[in-house]
């Protein structure tokens, strides 16, 4: 038997082993490894690798979409789900995979949120915007009671992952009253009372100018309004890559059990009218460490 095989045959790592090794790394490592050698490239493209990176319930999620798309490999499917929003649940939610980790993220559309008085056209109306991934966004005309609540089950998310919840919004040029008073934002998991903090619905560039005016005219009134809500520095919206603004409502750990996460932004203490807010939805996505 000796001499029948080349002596150095086993010095070469079998492609199947390379695939298994890469499946234990990350999507980023697997893509990068394509460049190591031709064996690695072919191993890094295999379904063994990408099946492991896809969420365990990806078939279920994809089946909730109206869009039927063809893909030739698990890698192609994975990258497709990273690079574009997949509308699911009749267009009420969108789904994505985070490229570097393979973890799941969702955006609950405005229609999937509980927005107080949103079905009363006096206060809110529903519009279709070209820059929205959804068919409709909620546009605030004017309201004194501003309450936006989103709910998601942790079982829909990747387990044991730190997630952040972000309200995706726009502030129109004709907005008024939105940051006269800070909004209270919170994220609660299950029955545990989450901590409430504050946020200002305003554009940073507008803010500096306004602040000067406020101090000049309403100094005392502003201080009084602010003292009615909890203390804190107050978050402000930041710009997203998709042209929207976002404001972090809070964070939570998805764990392993199925619990309901309640994410909210509320401003009901000022009693003044506010308007000019456009709500795209609430995004729930993994937080970078």
């Amino acid at each position: 038997m000796e001499g029948l095989m080349e002596d150095d045959e086993l010095k070469i790592l079998p492609e199947g082993c390379v695939s298994t090794i890469l499946s234990f790394t990350s999507p980023q490592d697997a893509c990068k490894s394509s460049l190591v050698s031709t064996i690695f490239q072919s191993a890094a493209d295999s379904d063994i690798v990408w099946e492991r990176f896809l969420p365990v319930d990806y078939e279920d999620i994809v089946s909730k979409s109206n869009v039927r798309f063809e893909f030739s490999s698990k890698k192609e499917l994975f990258l497709h789900l990273c690079n574009s929003d997949l509308l699911i649940d009749g267009g009420r939610k969108s789904f994505r995979i985070e490229k570097s980790s393979g973890k799941k993220s969702f955006i609950l559309s405005a229609r999937d949120l509980h927005i107080t008085s949103s079905n009363d056209p006096l206060y809110w109306h529903w519009a279709s915007l070209p820059e929205s991934r959804f068919s409709e966004v909620a546009v605030l005309r004017t309201v004194s009671w501003l309450e936006i609540v989103g709910k998601i089950k942790t079982q829909m998310l990747s387990p044991n992952t730190k997630y952040g919840a972000y309200l995706i919004l726009k502030i129109s040029e004709r907005s008024h009253g939105l940051d006269s008073m800070p909004s209270e934002i919170s994220v609660e998991v299950g029955n545990s009372q989450g901590s409430t903090t504050i946020a200002y619905l305003r554009l940073a560039r507008e803010h500096a100018r306004k602040q000067q005016m406020e101090r000049l005219f309403y100094g005392n009134r502003m201080e009084m309004l602010k003292s009615r809500v909890v203390e804190g520095d107050g978050r402000a919206p930041s710009e997203r890559d998709d042209g929207w603004l976002e404001i972090e409502l809070g964070e939570f750990f998805s764990g392993e059990n199925d619990e309901e996460v309640k994410m909210s932004l509320v401003e009901v203490r000022g009693h003044h009218l506010k308007g000019g807010l456009i709500i795209e939805g609430i995004e729930v996505r993994p937080k970078q460490y």
């Binding site: 890469l22 790394t25 980023q28 490592d29 990068k32 190591v36 050698s37």
Partner: peptide, 14 residues
């Protein structure tokens, strides 16, 4: 092996 090559450069993996 996966643990040792995670987040390393292509040259390192080679």
């Amino acid at each position: 092996v996966a643990d040792r090559i995670e987040n390393k450069s292509v040259e390192y993996v080679r």
